[in-house]
Design a protein around this nucleic acid. Structure first.
Lengths: 187, 187
DNA sequence: AAGCGCAGAATGAACGTTCACTCCGGATCA
DNA sequence: TGATCCGGAGTGAACGTTCATTCTGCGCTT
């Protein structure tokens, strides 16, 4: 297996579990390599974390856009994306926890974040435009609509993962999709 | 000024700006005291962080429930709380950034989080009950409704604070309240 | 086929720094 | 003068990073 990938994966696991202060020595142990080897692939720990972020955002984007043909109503297309997002975060708790940590990391440069998010953001915003043109969607800035729905979903999944009281509550996909659509729809 | 408060405030400032790994030495410097003094008030750094969390959740609760008499429709009462939350997070970026950091901190024990959130959560859930009894609110678990709205608002404020593109977008309180209510309302 | 040489990957002990935390000398009160 | 509180130098542990060394796989020679 590729060593670089092994290191990225080990870092992702540790950050998801113990936060950003996970020591390099543990990363090396989990990646089954020496500490020095990590520095053959990444200049600094900071860069390593940025690369983990990049990898993770690619996975998120891919997961969200899976089976998303550009057919069907705006509502159907948006709900497909939200459904993908919800299932991805729920089915991959490690990835969800990792994204939570990286989301507040001071190490990840702003510029890199924007680049990594561009793909999925672009797609969603163009759907918003279309929905607004049809009068189906509120006349609010794209960023507001997108961020609000994303924030709701990701927070819901985070709480379901960490708050014991929510764990045995059954949260269905239908609930989430209803919340997201009704929030942004014109009534 | 009370030394203990000074230390708590300094810790809050540093965590909001630099994350949880802010060193005790810097806390001491910002609090204008020696490192040893901190340990006269808190046994460990972990406990210090937990106390910061407690202080911050009290402020959040107080801000959210300000001027909230138990009169008016369910919608009016809920929107008053959300409005308070939105304004608080927006007007106190330090507090908002701090809550973001503490929200993913492994240091803060689950049990303490639940206790600190109990006040505001209770109030909101009872409003949900009433609204549901009147048929105004979706028949979904209280936690799902509450967490979704909170997640949407807090994420929106976080992005407005950190993403440069969103900074000059005008996000009004009305936008946020419309999103929150429509998400959870029966239509 | 066997032996040799070599480039680059991998290693982990060692280094200097920084951390959370301690401890004791001095300031501040009664 | 005795009791109490405080500060910041001191401490060992742990950190990110480096580097001298070892390992490994492949081409070349015989």
């Amino acid at each position: 297996m590729d060593k670089r990938e092994q290191i990225l994966e080990a870092t992702a696991n540790l950050i998801a579990e113990c936060g950003l202060q996970s020591p390099i020595s543990l990363v090396a142990k989990q990646a089954c390599c020496g500490a020095g080897t990590i520095y053959r692939y990444f200049d600094t720990k900071e860069e390593l974390i940025e690369m983990v972020y990049l990898m993770q955002m690619e996975r998120l984007t891919e997961a969200c856009l899976a089976n998303c043909d550009k057919q069907g109503s705006v509502r159907e297309q948006l709900q497909k994306i939200w459904s993908n997002l919800y299932r991805y975060l729920n089915d991959s708790p490690r990835d969800a926890a990792l994204l939570d940590q990286l989301g507040v990391a001071p190490d990840v440069r702003e510029e890199l974040q924007l680049k990594a998010q561009a793909g999925i953001v672009e797609r969603i915003h163009s759907l918003f435009e279309e929905g607004r043109a049809r009068g189906e969607i509120k006349d609010l800035p794209n960023e507001v609509l997108g961020v609000y729905a994303y924030g709701g979903i990701s927070t819901l999944v985070r709480m379901a993962r960490t708050k014991p009281g929510l764990k045995d509550q059954t949260i269905t996909e239908e609930m989430v999709l209803s919340l997201c659509w009704d929030a942004i729809a014109n009534h």
